[in-house]
């Protein structure tokens, strides 16, 4: 019984369903965190969770488990049985960009805290219409 469960889990149809539902669930959790929490670091964490969910979604659907990693080694000489390198290059770029945004966000938060002692979006009231 356990045997055919494993093979069922590996069929492309179910694998795709697992990846889509799982990463969308993670995306939803990040989105919930973004809306529900107002502390700056919590918001940065939720943004990063949403991004990881997108990376898993993209790579999960763009890669084929029966193919190998796109790296030529002494064992693999031809590219037919290799995965598509373009999504991997795109996600590599996106991860570095998310590091840049995160480190910038943190330094904003530090400087804002040092100046006003607040680290919460709800307490920010310097902008907006004033009579």
């Amino acid at each position: 019984m356990f045997e055919n469960l494993l093979t069922w889990l590996d069929s492309p149809q179910t694998l795709q369903a697992i990846v889509v539902t799982g990463s969308l669930l993670l995306f939803g959790i990040g989105f919930y965190g973004l809306l529900a929490y107002t502390r700056i670091i919590k918001i940065l964490i939720s943004l990063s969770i949403m991004e990881s969910a997108l990376f898993v979604f993209f790579l999960g659907l763009a890669s084929d488990p029966h193919k190998t990693a796109p790296i030529l080694g002494d064992l693999f000489k031809n590219f037919e049985k290799m995965n598509d390198p373009v999504p991997q290059a795109a996600i590599l770029t996106a991860i570095v960009i998310s590091l840049a945004t995160m480190s910038l966000g943190i330094s904003f938060a530090i400087e804002y805290y040092k100046r006003t002692g607040k680290n919460d979006i709800a307490q920010m009231d310097a902008l907006g219409e004033k009579r």
């Binding site: 991004e51 997108l54 945004t101 904003f108 100046r115 979006i121 920010m124 902008l127």
Partner: peptide, 24 residues
């Protein structure tokens, strides 16, 4: 780096990141 400017920067970063997330 005044309080107004930093608050604007933080809000813009969050909104901008959400926008580019949807585009991604």
């Amino acid at each position: 780096k005044s309080e107004q400017a930093l608050e604007g920067g933080i809000k813009y970063l969050i909104i901008g990141s959400v926008a580019s997330l949807f585009v991604f």
